[in-house]
Simulated assay, not measured.
Amino acid sequence: MEKSWYPGLMAREEKRLKENLKFIDLVLEVLDARLPLASRNYRLQKMLGDKKRLVILNKADLAEEDITGRWLEVLAREKWPVLAFNAREISGLKKLEKLLLVNRPENLQYRRSLRLMVVGIPNVGKSTIINRLVHKFAVKTGEKAGITRGPQWIRLRAGWEMMDTPGLLSPYFKNNDSALALAAIGSLDFKVVDEENTAKWLVERFLTREKFLSLIKYYVLADDYTGKSAARLLVEIGLSRGCLQKGGGVDKIKAAQLVLRDFRRGVLGRITLEKPEDYEEL
């Protein structure tokens, strides 16, 4: 992927994040549990350096539990605590709060508040985590990348303050699959990767991971999908859900939007888009 796609806004926010890091005691790095490595911004890793942090695999309820367990083992090789997190469960929130307490610096100057920063790429659920910690909707959330605009200081509780930052993507992607995966989870704008190709890539993942039965059930498709391409199956989903153009042809863009929206909502069942075994370097 060419560097030229990189928005000027992200470059400015990178600079602002660097400037604010010196005021932070503890960083929460948020990754998507369905895409732990591809949803990690390695430029951000370099910026953080040795800054103390917690690594959160968010949306764990949408990922395959056994594969998440393997990712936790891989990430635990780093020196930072790692937590699989489901914002819908109170038990996960309690575990996160406990980790924050355990990792609080012992001697804060002038007995000031603990200053936290939450970082990650767009749409991995940073603002949702903050809202759970605050126990109210302190910051906007949504499927669209770029909901958070500019750093925001939020008081979580007595003695805790957190800075929410806009999602920051790297200007480079490892390969086209990485870009399509990021688009599928909603982290990459469709001005960079189009919706139809992203949806076909996602349907192909369901096929190769032998998860297509969940699509058959949800979209009421024919059981016999052997030998059918992802493009053909996307057309059948469009037919099943009435995504039609004038004249009766399938509106592939609408069908793609439907599949991507349903995937992000979690109604297509649990699926992890990458495994540790996919990476030779791990």
Rank of each mutant, 00 (worst) to 15 (best):
E2K: 14
E2V: 12
K3P: 11
W5R: 07
P7V: 00
M10R: 09
M10L: 13
K15V: 08
R16N: 10
N20V: 13
L21Y: 10
L28P: 02
L31P: 05
L31I: 10
A33C: 07
P36I: 08
S39G: 07
S39D: 08
R43A: 11
L44F: 09
K46T: 13
K46F: 10
M47N: 00
L48C: 01
K51C: 12
K51N: 10
L57A: 00
A60E: 03
E64Q: 11
E64A: 12
D66G: 03
R70G: 06
V74S: 08
L75F: 07
L75V: 03
K79C: 09
V82I: 07
L83W: 06
F85H: 05
S91D: 15
S91G: 06
G92W: 02
L93P: 03
K95L: 08
E97W: 08
L101A: 15
V102E: 13
N107Y: 13
Y110R: 15
L116E: 00
L116M: 07
V118W: 03
V119F: 01
G120A: 03
P122H: 07
V124W: 00
K126A: 06
K126W: 08
K126P: 11
T128N: 09
N131G: 09
N131K: 12
V134K: 05
F137M: 15
F137D: 15
V139D: 09
G142S: 01
E143K: 14
I147K: 11
T148Y: 06
G150C: 01
P151R: 05
L156T: 08
R157H: 03
A158G: 15
G159F: 00
G159R: 01
W160I: 08
M163W: 00
M163Y: 02
M163P: 02
D164Y: 00
D164T: 02
L168S: 05
D177W: 12
D177N: 15
A181C: 05
A183R: 04
I185T: 03
F190L: 09
K191D: 15
V192P: 00
V193A: 14
D194G: 11
D194I: 06
T198C: 01
K200D: 10
W201T: 04
E204W: 11
F206V: 13
R209C: 12
E210G: 13
K211Y: 03
F212I: 12
S214V: 11
L215F: 07
K217E: 14
V220W: 12
L221Q: 04
A230P: 06
A230W: 07
A231C: 04
L233R: 02
L233W: 01
L234Y: 06
R241N: 04
C243R: 02
G248V: 13
G248Y: 10
G248W: 05
K252M: 14
K252H: 13
K254T: 14
L258R: 03
D262S: 08
F263L: 06
R264G: 05
R264P: 03
V267I: 05
R270I: 10
T272G: 04
L273N: 04
E274K: 09
E281Q: 09
E281D: 10
L282C: 10
